[in-house]
């Protein structure tokens, strides 16, 4: 190709050539399989929303103690209201 800007970029070419992609086996469908895609979406790895909290000691304490405190408050609350 006469207008190839990569022609003199040998280092860049060698780097870009390292990027290989393995193509998985993809069946040919001529109609969308929405249910299958939804299942695949649910099964795909997702970020843990609690991750920023568990990186600090205070965060871990909050994650561990939070449910206990909430449970205690919810069980004591009816006693305080009705007794």
């Amino acid at each position: 190709m006469s207008q190839d800007p990569f022609k003199n970029e040998r280092f860049l070419q060698s780097k870009l050539d390292e990027y290989h992609v393995n193509v998985p086996d993809i069946p040919l469908y001529l109609r969308k399989k929405r249910w299958e895609r939804f299942i695949n979406y649910l099964a795909s790895p997702a970020k843990n929303p609690m991750e920023p909290m568990v990186s600090t000691i205070n965060g871990i304490m909050l994650v561990k103690a939070g449910p206990v405190v909430c449970g205690t408050v919810l069980s004591v609350l009816p006693v305080l209201i009705f007794v």
Binding site: P24, I26, P27, L28, Y29, L30, R31, K32, R37
Partner: peptide, 9 residues
Amino acid sequence: IDIVQDTFI
């Protein structure tokens, strides 16, 4: 994968 399939659909 979804895009490959959608493209051919």
